[in-house]
């Protein structure tokens, strides 16, 4: 559901390199001021646009960031007492609170943008394979990628239930009330389905020898150019440096 197929440079970049990029973004958060973080987020969005996922990315970002941003600015700028207040029409607002909200917002925005950039150009199972290839135990790679896999699983499940409800007369396009009813009607079967299926799925994995051995071998190992390896080293070093700054 998150992944967008494509052939761009980012699609071709190895999953671990993109993971290093996310790490770099994460270590930037506590160090840099909001404008820098926002600029970096803008850069990431521009990179997405170059890889032809700009629109899809922007849509998702808007969906996530607009409500979060609004809540942050309202709560910190107007509701929580934060330093001296200033009048704004009939309301009072707190400039320091607004500044704080901006920082939080910028952090969330950067982390989200870079993460989206990664998950939208990386197949989850390529990430798992890359981790396998590094010799991580299959269970560890599984733990790291399971949440992303779950998203796809739930999306498939939800689609089946939505189809079932639509052919019997309840569909989102009938209007707002139907939409609300639809969400309510989907919840229980979705939960029940996930629970009853988890066992079968785990069984199927075990039956095919998953985690029977401490390592896996790969049919098609991922290949990396020396340039990419150097890039990743650079990203990791930069992340390390920022962590060091933070520690001092």
């Amino acid at each position: 559901m998150l992944y967008r197929s494509g052939v761009s440079a980012l699609h071709r970049t190895g999953p671990l390199t993109k993971l290093a990029l996310v790490l770099l973004a994460a270590t930037m958060l506590p160090i840099w001021p909001a404008p820098v973080l926002l600029a970096a987020a803008g850069l990431a969005l521009a990179a997405g646009a170059l890889c032809r996922i700009g629109w899809a990315m922007a849509r998702r970002l808007a969906m996530l960031l607009v409500p979060v941003g609004l809540a942050l600015f309202v709560v910190h700028g107007f509701m929580l007492e934060n330093g001296p207040a200033r009048p704004l029409g009939p309301l009072d607002y707190y400039p320091q609170g607004l500044a704080r909200a901006l920082t939080y917002f910028a952090r969330i925005a950067l982390l989200l943008t870079v993460s989206l950039l990664m998950v939208m150009t990386t197949r989850v199972n390529d990430l798992a394979r890359a981790l396998d290839q590094k010799g991580l135990p299959p269970a560890a790679a599984y733990l790291l990628t399971a949440p992303l896999n779950l998203v796809d699983g739930i999306a498939d499940e939800a689609a089946a239930i939505r189809d079932s409800l639509q052919v019997r007369g309840l569909a989102a396009r009938s209007g707002l009330r139907a939409r609300v009813r639809l969400l309510g009607a989907m919840l229980m079967p979705l939960v029940r389905g996930m629970i009853s299926e988890a066992g079968t799925r785990a069984e199927a994995l075990e039956a095919r020898g998953f985690r029977a051995l401490p390592h896996r071998s790969l049919l098609d190992p991922l290949t990396e150019t020396p340039a990419e390896v150097r890039l990743r080293m650079g990203l990791l070093l930069a992340s390390g440096a920022q962590l060091l700054v933070l520690a001092l």
Partner: peptide, 21 residues
């Protein structure tokens, strides 16, 4: 329900078991 959920393509899905071994 028996798909591994760990493969993208058909070929990868079939290889999943032998890879585990």
């Amino acid at each position: 329900l028996q798909l591994s959920g760990r493969a993208f393509t058909v070929r990868e899905e079939i290889a999943f078991g032998p890879e585990n071994l």
